[in-house]
């Protein structure tokens, strides 16, 4: 515990003051609580390992959809099969990629781009048969409209008028890369550079906007759609403008299973191809890749 250590620094050369004494006591209490609770959590953890568990890592933007998918999957499975558990972790795709390379125990990876899953296949971690594009993300510009920014304002106008533009980190998040591309295509790269506030992932970019600290955000449509219902959006004066036309290619999100593939993983992948699952994905603000059906105009 780094704090424990700092606290002892504070005590150097003198008897502990009352406040420090209290703090130390408090910390000892916390440690004691940890010692008591750790065995219990270990028991729970062991249980989850013993039963069938699926650990999925997903890019932040896909997390809300994936949660619905896993819930529906579990409901279907539990009808005819013994219980299992699905753990979902989310981060920016680059981080998850790095974690898997370091041996993180994920069985499935839903990336926000195509390259990380491909790299994992190349490095031998990913199973080539399971590599597929599962959704095509829409990039949207979210803004609030008021008297000064009429609803009809163009993306370019909005970006020029904005004081703060929230995006995901272009170094690690595919939607951040896409956002930068859109800004360049719109021809406002120079003007926007100093206004960019960079969220660690797409979820934090959305949070910057949602808390009112950034006036526009360029995020995945899925986040904007799920976070606010149409009625709420209207009430709060939120506008979303599709920026797909400013991208050379859409954000294609790929997935890959990490070796070895368990039966539960395979069952989940199979479930992903069912109409029920595809409807959840499209409802979440994504397009489906061309597979002979659900072809988008």
């Amino acid at each position: 515990m780094p704090k424990m250590w700092i606290s002892s620094v504070l005590n150097v050369g003198r008897t502990a003051s009352n406040s420090l004494g209290h703090l130390l006591r408090l910390k000892l209490l916390v440690i004691a609580v940890l010692f008591i609770t750790v065995p219990f959590t270990t028991v729970i953890f062991c249980h989850s390992v013993l039963s069938d568990t699926l650990s999925i890592a997903t890019a932040s933007n896909f997390r809300p959809v994936l949660e619905q998918l896993s819930q529906t999957f579990s409901e279907q499975q539990n009808a005819d099969r013994e219980s299992h558990q699905i753990n979902i972790s989310s981060a920016s795709s680059g981080v998850i990629y790095a974690q898997i390379l370091q041996g993180a125990p994920f069985q499935l990876f839903f990336s926000a781009n195509e390259s990380y899953p491909e790299k994992l296949v190349a490095s031998g971690h990913g199973d080539a048969k399971t590599l597929a594009t599962y959704a095509i993300g829409e990039l949207v510009l979210v803004s609030r409209h008021d008297a000064t920014s009429p609803k009809e304002a163009s993306p370019k106008e909005l970006l020029l008028k904005a004081k703060r533009i929230a995006i995901a980190n272009p170094r690690t998040a595919p939607y951040g890369i896409a956002a930068m591309e859109a800004i360049k295509t719109l021809g406002v790269a120079k003007e926007s550079q100093s206004k960019l506030v960079v969220g660690n992932n797409i979820a934090q970019a959305w949070q910057f906007f949602h808390s009112g600290n950034a006036d526009v955000a360029i995020v995945a449509a899925s986040l904007a759609y799920l976070a606010e219902s149409a009625a709420v959006k209207e009430q709060q004066g939120l506008d979303t403008i599709d920026l797909s036309s400013f991208l050379t290619s859409p954000v294609r999100q790929s997935r890959v299973a990490i070796k070895p593939i368990s039966p539960l993983t395979q069952q989940f992948l199979d479930f992903m191809n069912t109409p029920v699952a595809e409807k959840i994905i499209t409802d979440g603000g994504y397009l489906l890749p061309i597979k002979g059906k659900n072809i988008t105009p």
């Binding site: 680059g94 790095a98 170094r171 690690t172 506030v197 960079v198 660690n200």
Partner: peptide, 21 residues
């Protein structure tokens, strides 16, 4: 908000490097 020269301090820059591998 990870803005270079304004809010990108060392620990954030470090985190950024790690995330970008």
């Amino acid at each position: 908000g990870n803005i270079p020269g304004e809010t990108q301090v060392l620990s954030i820059a470090l985190y950024d490097h790690v995330e970008a591998l």
